[in-house]
Design a protein around this nucleic acid. Structure first.
Lengths: 123, 123
DNA sequence: TTGTTATTGCGATAATGTTGCAATAATACA
DNA sequence: TGTATTATTGCAACATTATCGCAATAACAA
């Protein structure tokens, strides 16, 4: 399974990079060329497999994707909080790490910490 | 808009109480009598409006509902973390409070902190 | 240039959740 | 108790998000 470089991938990656904050499928569709819905989803999931982006689940239950910035190749570092504005629905990463203590016998695999409220533009 | 007591409400509330952890619509449907899907959703949303339950969004994007235990009537206290097992999909509250610092101009309205991994039964 | 196969588009499908409307039933009140 | 009011329910339809199978296309290696 060798990956191939395609325009659609470049476009999606470009969009995510220039946006800076997390994007939903809907937001991506509005920005990139007219690709099929399934195509965008598949690209995003492939990126996620490859560790290029990480996924955040919004308060609305939607998936958001953001470029991995502080992540090592193997040691993904996603224990930071995200913020979603209740008005404009923008999702962004907060520079706040969390220390999480789980009860005995529990194994941590991921963390999706989402603060909701109003961003500086909407407050 | 005066609320009325119905069997369906009693059943849903009873199910949530005896379960102890958060439940999705699917889980509720399997436990309570055969009510219409819309009915259960409406009951849950009414409970939420009244502050009887709070809602958690799972890593799968689904809604989960749990009885409010430490919440005051007006001052809801939902800044605690939830845990969802990646195997059995159970959602439960962790007794861990968080201190969240938002950037200037941001207003906090809610927090949905979800740790995913393996619970003690599945690890 | 050609063969292999990763990728795409299309359509169908699944799952979750909400809404409008008519029928039903819980409650207040005569 | 009987009756009126209206909250609640069931049903069907709908909206949205996301995935999947399959055939066509296109990226890449040789």
């Amino acid at each position: 399974m060798n990956r191939r470089k395609t325009k659609s991938k470049r476009d999606v990656l470009e969009a995510l990079k220039s946006k800076g904050s997390a994007m939903s499928h809907e937001m991506l569709e509005a920005v990139v060329e007219d690709y099929n819905r399934a195509t965008i989803y598949r690209i995003l999931n492939r990126f996620r497999e490859e560790g290029i982006v990480h996924r955040i689940v919004g308060v609305n239950g939607k998936q958001y994707f953001a470029i991995c910035t502080n992540c090592e190749k193997e040691n993904h570092n996603h224990n930071h909080i995200h913020f979603q504005c209740n008005t404009c629905e923008k999702v962004e990463c907060l520079n706040e790490e969390l220390q999480i203590n789980l009860p005995k016998g529990y194994v941590l695999e991921g963390f999706n910490g989402l603060v909701s409220g109003l961003c500086s533009n909407c407050s």
